[in-house]
Each structure stands twice: as structure tokens, then as C-alpha cells.
Computed example of a mutant assay.
Amino acid sequence: MKHAAIDCLSSFQNSLSLNRSKHLLILGTGIAGLYLVGQIYVSYKKAQRRKKWASVEKNMVILHQFERGKFTPNVSPFPLKLETYLRMTGIPYENEFEEPMGPKGKTPWITLNGDEIADSQLCMELLARKFHKDCSSHLSPEEQAIARSFHIMAEEHLYWGLLLWRWVYTKGRTLWQVQCNLPKSLSLMLPLVVKKLKGQAQGQGMGLHTEAEVIEMSVKDLRAISSFLGTKQFLMGDKAIEADCAVFGILSQLLWNCPGSPFEQLLNGEFNNLKAYCERMKDTFWPDWDRCLNPARI
């Protein structure tokens, strides 16, 4: 009797185990099927977009970037830099906002005659060769070296002060003040995004310092740019050059997209010549600036 009861219980447990395995298999198959359908749809949409981009006229640049911001045409300095360059040089282009992240997982990127090119600086250098554009040709080698030094300082040092303020010190919360139509999922993913960007900043080196130290370093960069600019119209004189696009891209974020930051206060105070410089770049290359915001100011 006892053995029969044990056998019965064992059979019941095996039956439950088999049913559970069966249900898990069905569930797993369903999830895999949904994922496969999703990937097929994504691939289809991607192919359709590329077919559309290939249909534009020859030598038309397709500029892929984030959607427009509330106070600047882009809340990232690099798309703003590249679009300013396109306007400065008169190279024909169209904007595309559906696929902002490029082959290297960065924004912006461009499509030109079917080729995909990533990284704002590499895009500018390729376009300069393709369309024979050189906005710095009037400068001496020494002046070009100085311009490059300010360009690199802005993008490879001051930029990290911007990134740390926006994503680490304020935990990304100010993003909602400067950008409309952010996906709801971003608020759920924000801790992961902050952690990832903090890790990048630590890998670069700036993220290893205290907030006070980073702010001090960034202020020194701003003071250097302000002192060098002085009363000049643009970085190297009366004519804007490629380096102005990079410097403007960073400064515009600090001025208009870092609400409540010490950068915003300094650009409206001690370094007000940098604010005037940003306004000048905006007026010169972005006469339609207000229409390039979201919502547009018409």
C-alpha cells in the first residue's frame, strides 16, 4: 500500500514536471517567434528607409540626427556642429530623424550617394574633400594649429564637463526641460543610461574627479576660450571656420541646455562674450533657428 502511494505521488510529480516543461516550451517558442517577427519588421523598415534615401538627387547629404530640441535645434553638440558646417559651406542636405544612431552607435551620421558615414568630424572631413570646401585656407599653419587646439579642447575636454553635469550630477533629469517627445521608456532606462555614461567618463578620466574639480576644469576651458576670443567676431577673426562649428556646438549646450548649471550662469555673466559669440553664430548660420525648434517659435 505504501509503495503504491509513493508510486502514485511520483507519477503525479512527473506529470506536473512534464506539463510545466511543456508550458515553458510553448512560452519560449512564442517569445522567440515574436522576437523574430519584430526583427523582420525592423529589417524591413530599415531597408525601406535606405531605399528612400537612395532616391534623392546625387550628392544630396542625408543628415541623421535626434529630433529638434526646445531651445536648440539639437540637444547634442555634435549634430548641431555638423549641421552648422553644412550651412556654413552651402553643401545641400536634408534632415532625417527616424534613425538617429549610425553604424558606430553614435549620432549624427550621414548618407551620401548610398554610403553611410559616421562621426561628425569624419563626416566634415569627407565632405570637405568631396565638395572641395576649406574654410580655414586663409589661415597660416600656426593659426590652423591654434584653431585645432581649441577645437580639441572643446570636444575632448569641455564636453565631458557637459556630459557629467547633464547625466551624472543631475541624473539626466534636466533632459525633460530641453527636449520634447522623449520616449516614456527613457525614464525607466535612465539609471542604466546614467551608469553607462558615468563609466565612459571614468574611462576617459574626467569622471574620476569630484564634481567641484570637474566644474573648475571646465571653467578654466571657458575662460581660455573667452580670453582668446576677446572681441573678435569668430574664433580666428572675422570669418567663421570649421573649428567654430565645434566650439559653437559645445557652448550652445552649456548656454541654452544646462538649466541651473554654473555654466549657464557664467556664460550670462563673466563670459558674456561667449554668449554674444553663440548669438552671432546663430544669427549668421541659423536665420531660421526659431523654426528649427520643437515646438517651433514662429
Results as ranks from 00 to 15, higher is better:
59 N>G: 11
241 I>C: 00
122 L>C: 01
228 F>Q: 07
140 S>I: 03
42 V>W: 10
298 I>D: 14
105 G>P: 02
13 Q>H: 15
85 Y>V: 04
262 P>T: 06
219 V>E: 06
11 S>Q: 04
217 M>E: 13
211 E>C: 01
178 V>F: 03
236 M>R: 02
194 V>Q: 06
38 G>H: 09
242 E>K: 13
217 M>I: 11
270 E>R: 03
71 F>E: 04
218 S>A: 04
130 K>P: 09
12 F>Q: 09
95 N>Q: 06
218 S>W: 01
76 S>T: 11
4 A>V: 14
175 L>R: 05
150 F>Y: 05
221 D>Y: 05
179 Q>D: 06
187 S>N: 11
134 D>A: 11
181 N>Y: 12
224 A>R: 04
216 E>S: 14
6 I>M: 03
157 H>G: 08
96 E>F: 00
74 N>D: 05
231 T>A: 15
157 H>T: 10
22 K>I: 15
148 R>Y: 08
207 G>N: 01
215 I>L: 09
175 L>A: 09
192 L>P: 02
171 K>N: 14
4 A>I: 12
5 A>S: 13
292 C>E: 12
171 K>D: 14
173 R>I: 12
213 E>M: 05
169 Y>G: 05
77 P>Q: 02
163 L>T: 09
9 L>F: 09
264 E>L: 09
47 A>T: 14
125 E>V: 03
37 V>W: 02
19 N>D: 11
6 I>Y: 04
226 S>P: 01
145 A>K: 13
92 P>A: 06
11 S>N: 11
225 I>A: 03
174 T>C: 13
268 N>V: 02
77 P>G: 00
254 L>W: 00
190 L>T: 01
25 L>E: 13
264 E>H: 07
40 I>S: 14
292 C>Y: 06
170 T>Q: 09
161 G>D: 01
218 S>P: 00
271 F>Y: 05
208 L>W: 01
220 K>F: 03
124 M>N: 00
197 L>K: 07
268 N>K: 12
168 V>H: 06
212 A>T: 00
262 P>G: 01
105 G>F: 01
35 Y>N: 14
182 L>I: 03
171 K>Y: 11
147 A>L: 00
84 T>K: 03
67 E>L: 13
217 M>Y: 08
6 I>A: 08
179 Q>W: 07
105 G>Q: 01
186 L>F: 11
10 S>V: 05
219 V>T: 10
243 A>P: 02
149 S>Y: 10
228 F>M: 08
161 G>R: 03
216 E>C: 10
264 E>D: 05
69 G>W: 01
60 M>V: 15
292 C>S: 14
280 R>H: 13
285 F>N: 09
12 F>A: 15
156 E>T: 04
232 K>E: 04
7 D>N: 12
71 F>A: 04
230 G>K: 07
94 E>F: 11
286 W>F: 13
298 I>Q: 13
218 S>I: 04
279 E>F: 15
162 L>N: 04
59 N>D: 15
204 Q>E: 04
21 S>T: 09
64 H>P: 06
282 K>V: 12
101 M>Q: 07
262 P>S: 05
260 G>K: 03
197 L>Y: 09
192 L>M: 06
12 F>K: 06
